[in-house]
Structures are given as C-alpha cells and as structure tokens.
Design a protein around this nucleic acid. Structure first.
Length: 557
RNA sequence: GCCCCCGUAGCUCAAGCGGAUAGAGCAUCGGCCUUCUAAGCCGACGGUUACAGGUUCGAAUCCUGUCGGGGGUACCA
C-alpha cells in the first residue's frame, strides 16, 4: 500500500541520517505516521519530526529537513518539502499516478484486496435475534454492520464465515409459544383463555395464530394445554425462522451457517463444557443455583448458569456456543455484533474466554448503539414484546433496501442514531446512496455511448496523457480503496466505507464536469482512449465499493 | 449509586497513532444544460467541538470534575 511505502521510505531516511551522523543519536520511532495532506501541501504528510524534537534536541523543521535530505528515490515520489512547524510533505509523481489506471484495470474486481490476515479464519456472528418476531430497524443496523464487515474482512485476506445464532430455547421462547397459543384459542372464539402476563402482544402474533388456524385448523384446541403449546410452538418457531431468513434476504444478507441454541443441549455439548468448567474449578453451587465464578476471571460478578428451578440461562448456552466456535471449530478470531442493550454481557464473555485458557482478544464484540425509529417528530417504539412495531421489512418496502442499508452504515457504531422514515423517504431523490449509484450509472452511460458510436477500444492507450487535475484527483481517490479496506478491517467500523463512496462519487462527478471523455473533435482520439481507460477503472472501484457496502451497482438510473 | 457509549454548523453526522485554517450531506441563498444522464457541477451562509480545569511543542481526540442524552447493572435475552 502506498502509505506504507511512504512510511518505509521515511523510516529508511531516518536510519540513514542517523548512520551518517546527520542527526544526534536517538531510537528511531517504531512506526512513522503518514497522513493524507490537504492539496496545497501535497498528497501525503508526515509529522514524524515533531515528537523527535525533544529526544534529538533539534528544532523539528531542522529534523524534517535532514530527513528529506536523506530520502531515497522511489518511482511514485515527485517531491518532498518541509513546512512549518515541521511537516514533511510528499507530492506524488503524476506520470506514476496515471500508470496506476493500468494496475486497477489489471486487478479488475479484485482491486482493493490486501493481505492483512494471511487467510486467518474468522467468524462474524451477527443479527442473531430471537426467533419470536420479525426483524426491526435495530436488527437492520446489526445486519448492515455485520455483513459489511464480513465483506471487507474477506477483501483484507481473512477466511470469513458468516453465522446466525437462533436462540430457540429458553424462557422467552416458551413465553412466545404460550402467547401464540393464547391468540390461537382467542381467534377460535375461546375468549376466556388467559393471555400470559408479559406475553408477546404484537399484532403479528395474532396473524401468526390465524395462519396456523388456516393451515392446521382447530386440532390443537382439544389437546392437553402443555402439549398444545409445545406443538403450536414448534410450528410458530419454524414460521419465525423462515420469516427472519426472508427478512435477511430483503436486507441483501447471506449466511454460511445457521446455528441453533437448542443444539448445544441436544448434542450434549453443554453438559460436556459444564463438566470441564467444573473440573477447572469455575463452577460453584450456591443458593440452589449453579454459578459460573467469573469474579476470579476479571468479571465484577458471578453469573448464574443453571437456575435454582432447573432451566439453564441464556448465558449457559453461550458458554457452550463459544466453546464450539473456538475449540471445536478452531476459529482464529470471532466477531460478535451486539446491540448496546447487550453490553453488560461483554465482561462475562471475556471471563468465559479466560476459563477456556484463550486470549479474550480473539473475541471481538462490536457494540453498536441503538436506533430510534422516527416518523417526523414521533418516535416509533420497537419493543417486540409489547405492542406495535414497524418491521424492518416494512421500512425497506417504504424507503428501499439500498437506502436503508446505506443510511444505517453512515454512522459509526458508537453513535446513537435516529432513523427518520419521513426524512429517508423525503430525501430519497437526493439520497447519498443514489448520488453514488448515479456516478456508477453515468460511467456505464459513457461506456454505452462509446459502444453505440462505434468508438474502438485501444488495447494500449497512452495513459500518460492523463494530466488534468480532475483526472489525477480521480486516480488519487481510487487508490484510497485499499487503505479504506485496511481501516475498516482494523477498526471494524464500516461507516468509513460509505463516506469513502461519497467522496469518490464527488470526485468522479467533478471529473465528468471537467473532462469530456468521448470527444468528437478531430485529434482527440488519444485522450479519449486514455479517459476511457480511466473511466473503466473508476467503474471498477465504484462497483467494488458499492458491493462491499452491499448495495446495487445500477447501469442506469 | 456503580459501569459502558455519546454530546461537534439550524438538522443528521465525519474527523485513521494527539498534528497544519475542524469537514460532508440536508436545509437556506446565488450562479451553471447546443455535445457522454442537471439524481449533476460551482459559489455563499453557517462553529466558544456541552461546560470547567489539567497534560502536551500541539487537544474535538488523552486525564479529572460538572451538566445533558442513550444503554447496562436480574436465577430476562
């Protein structure tokens, strides 16, 4: 990557200057900071000299100048100069820049790939909502973050697996089943059937009950209550799983594996892991319950694994599940994408990792802040358990899948965000996602136009004709994609990608305004050919970016 | 009470390891279509980075405190 090459060049210059005695002896910095510079300063800048002023007992400008004097040659380097208070500014060689178009065309849809991980196996587990209701906008944010991170990690050289964990066991599910059964009976006219306290009151439960009546009739009404709840529950569960899988298709998300919580109880894994923890001394019985003694493992409290009245907690299966991920399946690293309402769960998962004798850093839990769905000033409540909710699918149908996905990815995971339906629909016309897609469509249009006009495509256009500032800016922009992929991979913050997409689109629109590609002027054939190559490269980079974000790459709008 | 995230332009939000004059979009106002898509381009307006201290050559960024918003703190998930 370009930035790294510049950092290396400067690091080498510091070493050489030290060897030559041009700088007083000091330990060279471990890594040389290099940043993009404002255009008036050049392409890149490094403030490396400034913190050295103290150790070298020299003014930073003087240090920077000495470093520049010892800077070696590089094909990309045109000029390096020092500005106050001690920045080293680097300007790229424009002919080198122009030649990068060929490199992009050659890489094709692989452009942007980097090798950050050398094929390390990583799992991204995301959404994993309980199968007791449709997905909401909050799950949408989870899906967008998880899927895009998975896309980017794959581009960064990880072997990525996407997984969904269905919490199909436990108390909440039983409550859900009982709620469906109650609605089922009520819909059949048994008004006297009691609805569970704190049951699932959403209208979709009534629809679900009605659907079961349509398909199965009233045959559960005569059964023993527990058996009826169990049988209806099984049907309801399957329907909810199917519903969620469909919702995810609407979001454009694809999974490699669906994992069920119930499986760790059925195949004995839970018992096995519990036994192992008992042997290691991390399990204790007190107050009639079975506890995980995480206090000794960095957590500030112990946690119940098996309740005093018998059933295991959600945490119990999570222990077994993570054992499965790390020990049985051997992932090098696992990412869990969780809403802020699960943040309290993080310390105990770290304790679980330690209890397995594993480095907690191998488990990266991304906590994203909650989404408030709004319609204008009105807040739309999203509780699955109590009342009305607007589903993710309804939001997608209302404002469009690409819009939902892009908007959800525009904010950093740490930012609380409002999703205003009115605004999302209102601004649909000039939505940022359309702005970016429009750039892609414009390129497609140029290429179509060239074809219709019978413009031949040269195999070997003279790419060095690309010297216009707008042309070079476009190339500079395209070369940033690998950096963005590195940034998103390292920080697990996908919003950098949507911001980059907008910037690249802006740069393209600027180029489009400034530079005519298919020229009818005689003598313009050569520049037209060079620009056609540039435009084809831009299409590759825009398409790659949009695909990583998970939105469409339209040929026309 | 304690723990986590956040507070930046009228609104929604950016700002890679602490770096140069804090940036976009929307909104408002003013320009630009005889040629590849005007869903576009150019310009203007807009800031005590919640507040008060501190560390540093340098702070939106790090530390302490105050205020405000969200989340957690269950034998819920």
């Amino acid at each position: 990557m370009l930035k790294e090459r510049i950092a290396q060049l400067i690091a080498q210059a510091i070493d050489d200057a030290l060897d030559a005695g041009a700088l007083p002896p000091f330990d060279p910095p471990d890594n040389v900071p290099v940043q993009h510079a404002k255009p008036k300063f050049g392409d890149f800048a490094s403030p490396v000299a400034m913190p050295l002023a103290g150790v070298a007992h020299m003014p930073p400008v003087k240090i920077a100048e000495t470093i520049v004097e010892h800077l070696g040659d590089a094909d990309f380097l045109a000029e390096a100069h020092v500005t106050h208070p001690g920045f080293i500014n680097i300007r790229l060689d424009t002919a080198w820049l122009a030649r990068q178009v060929e490199a992009i065309l050659e890489a094709g849809d692989q452009f942007g790939n980097i090798d950050l991980a050398g094929g390390k196996r990583i799992q991204v587990e995301f959404v994993s909502s309980n199968p007791n209701g449709p997905l909401t906008i909050g799950h949408g944010r989870n899906a967008a973050i998880g899927d895009t991170i998975a896309n980017v990690l794959a581009a960064a050289g990880y072997d990525v697996q996407r997984e969904y964990y269905f919490n199909d066991a436990g108390r909440q599910m039983n409550l859900f089943y009982a709620s469906v059964f109650a609605r089922y009976m009520q819909e059949l006219g048994h008004a006297d059937v009691e609805f569970p306290e704190a049951g699932y009151r959403g209208a979709y439960v009534v629809d679900l009950a009605q659907e079961i009546i349509d398909e199965e009739g009233d045959r559960f009404a005569g059964l023993d209550h527990n058996r009826a709840v169990e049988e209806i529950g099984a049907i309801a569960l399957q329907k909810m799983i199917d519903l969620i899988k469909e919702d995810l298709v609407f979001m454009g998300v694809r999974y490699d594996r669906w994992f069920t919580e119930s499986s760790v109880y059925e195949n004995g894994l839970f018992d096995q892991v519990l036994e192992m923890l008992r042997d290691k001394g991390y399990v204790e019985e007190k107050e009639g319950a079975v506890w995980f003694t995480s206090t000794g493992l960095g957590d500030d409290k112990d946690n119940v694994i098996i309740r005093s009245n018998g059933p295991p907690t959600y945490f119990a299966s999570d222990i077994a599940y993570h054992y499965d991920k790390f020990v049985l399946r051997g992932f090098d690293e696992v990412i869990n994408v969780w809403g802020a309402d699960h943040q309290g769960h993080v310390p105990r998962m770290n304790a679980v990792m330690r209890s397995f004798g594993l480095d907690p850093d191998r488990l990266d839990i991304i906590i994203y802040q909650l989404v408030t769905l709004k319609r204008g000033d009105e807040i739309v409540r999203l509780s699955t358990r109590t009342g009305d909710l607007i589903t993710l699918r309804e939001v997608i149908e209302e404002v469009g899948g690409d819009v939902v996905r892009f908007l959800l990815l525009q904010r950093s995971p740490t930012a609380q965000m409002d999703f205003d339906l009115e605004l999302a629909k209102d601004t649909s016309e000039k939505n940022p996602v359309y702005y970016v897609q429009y750039a892609h469509a414009r390129i497609s249009s140029i290429l179509r136009y060239a074809q219709e006009r019978g413009v031949p495509l040269f195999d070997d256009p003279d790419i060095t004709l690309l010297t216009h500032p707008a042309e070079l800016d476009l190339i500079r922009g395209m070369l940033r994609l690998p950096e963005i992929i590195e940034l998103v991979s390292a920080k697990r913050e996908p919003h950098h990608l949507t911001h980059y997409a907008q910037e690249l689109a802006t740069t393209f629109h600027g180029f489009y305004k400034e530079c005519r590609v298919i020229s009818s002027e005689p003598g313009d054939e050569a520049i037209s050919q060079a620009r056609l190559a540039l435009v084809r490269a831009a299409k590759i980079v825009l398409a790659r970016t949009l695909t990583l974000i998970g939105v469409g790459t339209p040929e026309q709008m």
